[in-house]
Nucleic acid binder design. Structure first.
Lengths: 231, 231
DNA sequence: CAGCGGATAATTTGATCATATTCTGGTGAA
DNA sequence: TTCACCAGAATATGATCAAATTATCCGCTG
């Protein structure tokens, strides 16, 4: 039984050995983050179990994680759903991001290398393409990855975690709003921000991100407000 | 009226309706929050399963939740443990709380009723008693409940969630620090804060809480710094 | 006679456990 | 030191039990 070569035989596939609950978690997370699960839409454990072709136990664990992160909500009875945000909730999120994102951007500017800047620029270019093509899903995903990348560059693991968790909360609403308004007049201060980063001007980069965040979130707030009235 | 007694054991337990995984979660959360699980200490699922006298499935779910909240850390291999904070991590937490706690306090001051103030005052009185008795565990728990109460009064569910999550991260370190320094010279600006709240001076209340937070967290930072060197 | 309300039955969903399988880390021998 | 084996832990499945929602039916009233 030649088992010595096992460590080398895995080189074809980088990480095929991720646990099922981790894979389920990532799938569900993406579903929530990019609005494929609409806010208020109820899901059942068994339903997801079938939909994703997995056992219940991994699905249960993934759902627990997402509930803990605020991405899902335990709806009292026996349903979990993506939370419906009130206008007040949006205000909270705006307040939090207005403070978190600029700080992380400042730190990222101080630490970013040339390669990092090139990566960010590439992401932003792809983002522009998605916008011009009217590719909503692509826009949402790339916009997230752009900001996520900034968080990672800031080398502040806890704050990055918090900021990442906030995305999980307003992601679904973002999708709803963009679905209504199209991808044309979306805020994109990324160009200003990147220019400031290249110049090493952390303060200007932070200011640009702040405007980007506020513009985007205000659109969400204004678009959400009538929803609360609709009921 | 067939009021048949279906369960014989339910009359003794007030809330047997809570699922096991929820109970396990609360127990573990308290263990982490108040430092009964020391930072760095590894725990196994099976170990906890025996220790708490429960099956593995509920324990697994509880652990997933705590990992998602940053209360526990998946240590690569097959151990989960309470995260060891670096001095940088503490700085992040100070930065976050310095911003979150005053804001929530401002909102709480604007919304607190007379009863709320009485409750907070009662909590603070108990807290003083715990300090004077050298009751470390009591201090930690009451201090947490005092701040938690403020968060709830702020009526900002998302930000309160975030703030609560931060406690889970520095709670274990707080225990370590207080264990070393005793309960005597602990910061307690609660009196100033309560006075400001009674006067309806939200700004002064926020300022007092900010000092309380910074003082406490700075002690943690200074006490943690040599720990990183110890290795 | 038709429509409605309440109670009960049935189906669906969730929670837990026992068990099989896989994987990791350590240990002992060559 | 290295390799093979072993012990133990974690993951994942299926079955079982409990609870709740939905569906059905019966009797009652207008």
């Amino acid at each position: 039984m030649p088992k010595a070569a096992q460590k080398f035989s895995t080189n074809t596939i980088p990480e095929p050995r991720l646990p099922a609950h981790e894979l389920i978690y990532r799938q569900l997370r993406a579903l929530v983050l990019f609005g494929d699960l609409a806010p208020g839409q109820a899901v059942t454990i068994q339903g997801l179990s079938e939909r994703l072709g997995a056992g219940m136990t991994p699905v249960r664990e993934a759902i627990r994680r997402l509930i803990a992160e605020g991405a899902l909500e335990f709806q009292g009875n026996r349903r979990v759903s993506v939370p419906l945000l009130s206008a007040d909730n949006i205000s909270e999120l705006i307040y939090a991001r207005q403070w978190l994102d600029p700080y992380l951007t400042t730190r990222a500017t101080e630490r970013a290398t040339g390669d990092d800047l090139a990566d960010l620029t590439a992401l932003d270019t792809e983002l522009d393409r998605a916008i011009s093509h009217g590719d909503l899903r692509g826009y949402l995903e790339l916009n997230y990855r752009f900001h996520k990348r900034l968080y990672d560059l800031a080398e502040a693991s806890i704050l990055a975690d918090v900021a990442d968790g906030l995305w999980l909360r307003f992601g679904p609403s973002l999708r709803v709003v963009c679905g209504r308004m199209g991808t044309q007049n979306l805020p994109d201060k990324h160009k200003d921000m990147l220019a400031a980063m290249r110049a090493g001007d952390a303060e200007a980069a932070a200011r640009a991100i702040r405007e980007d965040v506020v513009q985007g979130m205000e659109q969400v707030r204004q678009s959400i407000a009538p929803q609360a009235h609709a009921h």
